[in-house]
Design a protein around this nucleic acid. Structure first.
Lengths: 153, 153
DNA sequence: CAGCGATAGATGCAAATGCATGTAAATCGG
DNA sequence: CCGATTTACATGCATTTGCATCTATCGCTG
């Protein structure tokens, strides 16, 4: 690196983003190579996970799409695959004839929990030796703030 | 959310990772929808970028693969496409008959610079309103530390 | 230095992805 | 309330991706 971080605001922003991105790549690479994702791709698990966190149990397809880094059409087909495997259930949205609601089936919930347990252990095994608790809390705070600012337009 | 962050080390780690991941998704979604990536996919740009940062100019394919979230075979074909477009050049590695060295062509360097300028502006436009300079520096520090710990085995 | 496992990269092939577009329903403007 | 625009999701199709496997070379061990 021929420059010092913080030299200019623009450069600092770029370096911060690159570092965040590379860290995500490094962690994700480890996670997805683990045995937890033999049964299900990461994106597929992510959909099950998001559904499992949904208070009402039902979630609109377009809301799901905000969470996942996939095009609308890819998500549509991913959900189609999950449905074929009996992991999620579709239902036309009651208030909006265009929309589709999704929820986990019992099998979907079971599989999410099973993978989730292993996944959380893997995450912990990577994060705990890397950062102290207070560093993790700070990282959590900063990434939440970033996400809020970016996706909240 | 039915739980408080920091309740347990394992949960804190999981929430921190999820927040980091979602922030990355949110930022990436914005970046890749910008006009900077009409000519080139993000992963393709990333390869050009990494090559542009390489001191010697030449980089081994397997070293490149550590930076990018792609399988070895996908990277192999991605590079093949870049070569066909005249953006990178291949050369057999001198010390290792199995290896391949890569470098940017002039056209590749020009395209990287052009996209890079726009890309950096986009990043700055997202990061600057989201986090103060010192927050960005802290985020940079934490993600570097995380990456170092995770990829350094 | 002969044999053997490990590593770097390429390739066949099936699956996943994105773009463009299609269909249908909602919303808006007059 | 009607036509035009927008939004939600699905689908055809070409491209990209990953898994398994193949080839070639490297490094090690006897």
């Amino acid at each position: 690196m021929t420059t010092q971080p913080g030299e200019s605001p623009v450069r600092l922003a770029a370096e911060t983003w690159e570092s965040l991105f590379r860290a995500q790549v490094a962690v994700m690479r480890r996670l997805q190579s683990g045995p937890a994702f033999k049964a299900l791709a990461v994106n597929e698990y992510d959909v099950l996970f998001t559904l499992s966190r949904c208070p009402s149990g039902w979630l609109r397809l377009n809301e799901l799409n905000d969470n996942v880094l996939l095009s609308q059409s890819s998500l549509s087909r991913l959900v189609e695959r999950l449905e074929k495997r009996g992991l999620v259930e579709r239902m036309p949205a009651p208030q909006d004839g265009r929309g589709v609601l999704l929820k986990l089936t019992d099998a979907g919930r079971d599989l999410q929990k099973q993978i989730g347990r292993e996944h959380v252990r893997d995450i912990s095994a990577l994060m705990t030796p890397a950062l102290t608790s207070s560093e993790q809390r700070e990282l959590l705070r900063l990434t939440e703030k970033l996400r809020g600012s970016v996706s909240g337009r």
